[in-house]
Design a protein around this nucleic acid. Sequence first.
DNA 1: CTTTTTTGCACAATCGATGGTGCAAATAAT
DNA 2: ATTATTTGCACCATCGATTGTGCAAAAAAG
Lengths: 354, 354
Amino acid sequence: MKPQGKKKATIYDLSVLSGCSASTVSAVLNGTWRKRRIKESTAELIQGLAEQHQYTANLQARGLRNSRSGLVGLLLPVHDNRYFSSMAQTFEAQVRSHGKCPVVVSASRDPQEELATVETLISYSIDELFIAGATDPDSVHCLCEAAGIRHINIDLPGTKAPSVISDNYQGARLLTQAIIKRFDDAAAPLKPEELFLFGGRNDHASRERIKGFRDIKTELLGQDSDACIQPTGYSPGMTQKAFEAFYEREGKLPRGLFINSSINFEGLLRFMAQHPHETFADIVVGCYDYDPFGSFLPFPVIMIRQDSESMLAKAFELIEEARPAVKIHLIQPELVHPRTALKGPLDSIRDIDA
Amino acid sequence: MKPQGKKKATIYDLSVLSGCSASTVSAVLNGTWRKRRIKESTAELIQGLAEQHQYTANLQARGLRNSRSGLVGLLLPVHDNRYFSSMAQTFEAQVRSHGKCPVVVSASRDPQEELATVETLISYSIDELFIAGATDPDSVHCLCEAAGIRHINIDLPGTKAPSVISDNYQGARLLTQAIIKRFDDAAAPLKPEELFLFGGRNDHASRERIKGFRDIKTELLGQDSDACIQPTGYSPGMTQKAFEAFYEREGKLPRGLFINSSINFEGLLRFMAQHPHETFADIVVGCYDYDPFGSFLPFPVIMIRQDSESMLAKAFELIEEARPAVKIHLIQPELVHPRTALKGPLDSIRDIDA
DNA sequence: CTTTTTTGCACAATCGATGGTGCAAATAAT
DNA sequence: ATTATTTGCACCATCGATTGTGCAAAAAAG
């Protein structure tokens, strides 16, 4: 009735109150009571008591007994970024709709941290794990494998578990092409040495994007050189430094910029904050990630929206298969033209107004 | 040695392997072995075996026994937003540094969902709960209270548990003042009916911000009317509609805009996508939330950065107190001038380059 | 060589829920 | 009325780790 006392009711409490055994109470409350041929009236009695006393099962005990917990994990590199936070949002909704409990954790793109975090999750007997953007998916796979936990890679592929990732090559081609096309009507045509790629590191996604970038660049501008690729890692600070260094050297920024991720784009923002507007009045930026605010900056920003909804949907589908093939599933990303405000997962949340 | 088999080693496995009892193994592995006067050599033996067999404790079992789990929860309204995702990032780091396991979940600003989510967390015996931006913190409090779980409100205050929130009134005054000041050198001075507030609902934060807005507006512009307050809830879609309606009516946007949150700001983006640039060439926007990309839009955007680091730090401090006073702690937010790229939690992540 | 003290560890109960097994009472079949 | 079924539920072991208690053997004291 009232939320009295300090401790939660257990099946033993209800057992005493109802005069039934604990196993009967358990069966009634977890829904297996018909199978166990419990009388309907006893079931009702117990359900009534459970409600009165605000019984909720101790999920640790249940998990211990079943060696399943009802928890489904999502391992992210970082939260603080629209791509991943929107993935988290979608993930939660999906997991909830399956009647499970979502757990989102980040591991800072640190292989050690990734393994430690996953070990912790395994120790809580999570049922399934979605591994997004892991630096070392295969090691994570081994942990999951050993613990018998279904898992799948997202965003960055592994070689030992099925992976669902963006078609980074295709996305990069689209993006590069769109950047170049922006200069069609320009006074001076874009020269190959005016189109640079900044950001990324030696991961699968960056490699594919670089490949797409270079292929299209060669195709359309006839030429491309190593100097135009500036990997800076996934760090705003490092990216800013790269821009500063370039500017120091050349006295200007490249007219065309392919930026590997919104995190790197933040490095450009930092650069911008240090320099007058003229420094980049006529640049065209392509960013491999979508951020609604980024899309409205004062110069043309073409973005790639990775379709994390589809990626997750595919991943959920695969993870339910008995023995999914260890292959890479490519999801097509979407080109987003400048000044575009796309809807996101928040739009499906109903909001009650004042 | 090799990550063989399917099942994880338990203390019973190690008990057999070492020839010691399970309780000895347990004591050695959880560090209480000195207190239990276990010989150093036995400890070493068992630790060696544990390492060889990759033992990790089953945290559900431990949690069941201790009725503590090592989990610390953060309840968010949504992930997909820089304010909350950056809070999640900071939270994780803090919790990890305390040797616990962070669990971040969102509840979509839905009171029902909030309660259900918290019940689930409680069923997993989380040790502490940080309640951020809950619509109904007091009901959540009751659940925690009944379960004996330490908890604290962040961002939106409750009346039954200590709360750490932004000084929304002061922040709104700062922001409103900064917006008005922007028009000091304008051709035509800003008139009271040209400064509007959009967004927010009937929650504590919105009310305080509205109060601050109106107070400063009256103070500096001599006048303020109810018509200048347009609460739209925390929804991009509703906010867009409000802008469209205004534009329909007035043929233009207000010159001065106070936008209640970055989520509402996205509503403005959607409006912008539908209208030519001239429609808002000379507006000044103040947004109560900081988003790095938002800060560089083509018109002046003044932002308020809520200091979630300090809020969390204070919250951690309070939650460790035995019986913290039920009061509201105000944290000062920071005014961010246009074209500013602040550092965030990601900057403390070390990044290994290609 | 006894008695006392210390050392080192094993035993068993416990946390809460689950599910296989068994058994009495109620009901049906003969 | 007797045997065969079915119904309804209780009993108990189990999941893995923790911890209070007790008791031998070893060491120290007498």
